[in-house]
Simulated assay, not measured.
Amino acid sequence: MYVAVKGGERAIANAHALLAEQGRGHPHLPVVDPAQVEGQFGVLVSRVMTEGSLYDPELAARALLQAQGDVLEAVTLVRSYRTTLPRFGYTCAIDTSGLAPQRRISATFKDLPGGQQLGATFDYTHRLFSAAGAATPDRRVSDGVDGEDQAMPRVADLLGAGALIEPDAHPDQDATQPGDLTREPPVFPMSRAERLQALARGDEGFLLGLAYSSQRGFGNTHPFAGEVRVGEVEVEFDAPELGFGVPLGRIEITECQMVNQFTGSAETPAQFTRGYGLAFGRSERKVMSMSIVDRALRSAEFDERVVSPVQDEEFVISHSDNVQATGFVEHLKLPHYVDFQAELMLVRRLNEEFKESRA
Rank of each mutant, 00 (worst) to 15 (best):
A193C: 00
E148N: 10
D146C: 00
R183T: 06
E148R: 13
R216E: 09
G147E: 04
P189D: 09
C256I: 06
M258A: 11
I251H: 01
E252I: 10
F237Y: 14
Q261W: 09
P178T: 04
A151N: 12
Q173K: 02
T176N: 11
R216N: 07
D172M: 00
G275E: 06
V235R: 05
M152I: 00
T273A: 14
P186K: 15
S265H: 04
S142F: 13
I253Q: 04
R195Y: 01
E204K: 09
P171C: 07
A239I: 04
A151E: 14
P137N: 11
R216H: 06
P185E: 01
C256P: 04
L181P: 00
F188Y: 13
E267D: 12
D180K: 12
N260T: 08
G219E: 09
R139Y: 13
G162L: 12
R154W: 15
P189H: 10
F237V: 04
D146S: 09
P167M: 05
Y276A: 03
T254V: 07
C256W: 08
A161M: 06
F188N: 03
F262C: 05
S214F: 06
V259N: 02
G144Y: 11
Q215E: 13
L158G: 02
G160T: 00
G144Q: 08
A225F: 09
G205S: 10
D172I: 02
G219D: 05
A266S: 13
E252T: 15
E252S: 14
A225S: 10
G231A: 02
D138V: 13
N220C: 05
G245C: 05
R154M: 13
M152Q: 07
N220K: 10
R192W: 12
L164N: 02
P171I: 06
G219S: 06
Q150E: 09
D168P: 00
Q150Y: 01
F188K: 05
G264M: 01
V187M: 10
G160D: 00
L158R: 08
S214I: 07
L158M: 13
G219P: 09
E255M: 10
L208D: 02
S214L: 09
L181Q: 00
M258P: 01
G245P: 02
P178Y: 04
Q197S: 03
E236G: 00
A270Q: 14
Q150C: 03
S213H: 14
S213A: 15
R183A: 12
G144K: 13
G277Y: 03
R201P: 00
Q271S: 11
P153K: 09
V235I: 15
E184T: 15
G243M: 14
I165L: 02
G217H: 07
F206P: 04
P185M: 01
L158K: 06
R154E: 07
A163L: 15
V145K: 07
A200W: 00
E255D: 12
L242R: 08
L159P: 05
M258W: 06
E204D: 10
V187E: 12
H170S: 08
A198K: 03
H170V: 04
T182P: 00
T221Q: 12
E234R: 10
L210Q: 03
V259G: 03
G160P: 00
G231M: 01
P186M: 14
P178V: 03
R229Q: 12
